[in-house]
Amino acid sequence: MKVKLEIDPDQSENEVIIKAAKITPEIERLYRRLQENSAQDDQITGYRGSTAYYLKISDILFFETEAKQVMAHTKKHSYAVKYKLYELENLLGGQFMRVSKSTILNLDQIYALTRSISNCQIQFQNSYKTVYVSRRYYRELRTKLDERRAQ
């Protein structure tokens, strides 16, 4: 693999481009790591009442829709955000994954996974909040968690 660095004083924002003939496991791992690193320092604006809060993306446990409003949940509070779930999927890094029609989960915040006959429940450390994973997304979730553990 070739690695190339170009310095351009006219560049307003840093940009990383990966050029590959096809997606290999090595390219996919590199892409995920770059996404995770770029998303760790990012913030998103959440609203509680008339107050705007600047939330670190890494502190968010999950996003879910409630009555046509997307909510960002942290360990203690929930905040309204001005994004749709599909927009968040594109915006967020590889540490987030959709686990149901109405929920996007932060994979780094998972503490426990409880599987039963009818569903799968996710628990978070130091939080009473839980999330249910739909059967449609369960296999992909297990695969991602296993890949992260192997790294």
Rank of each mutant, 00 (worst) to 15 (best):
T103P: 05
V70L: 05
I60H: 03
V133T: 06
F63M: 07
A112F: 13
L107D: 08
I17Y: 02
S134W: 06
Q151F: 12
N119G: 09
R148D: 04
A150T: 07
G49F: 07
A21S: 14
T45R: 11
I110G: 00
E87G: 08
K75F: 03
E13I: 13
A112Q: 15
T65G: 00
G46I: 01
K75C: 03
Q151Y: 14
N119V: 07
L105G: 03
Q40S: 12
L34T: 12
A20Y: 05
Q151I: 14
E15R: 14
A150Y: 08
R98N: 12
A112V: 12
L85E: 11
Y132L: 09
S12H: 14
T51H: 01
N90A: 15
R29L: 10
Y53S: 00
R33H: 13
R48G: 02
L55H: 07
Y83M: 01
R33S: 10
K4E: 09
S116W: 00
A150N: 08
S127H: 10
T74P: 10
Q35P: 04
Y86G: 09
M1D: 09
Y54V: 07
R115G: 03
T45C: 09
M1F: 10
Y137D: 04
S58T: 12
S118I: 04
Y47L: 13
C120V: 15
D146T: 13
Y31I: 02
D108L: 11
V16T: 15
E15F: 09
L145E: 05
R48Y: 01
A52V: 03
L88M: 08
Q125T: 07
Y79V: 05
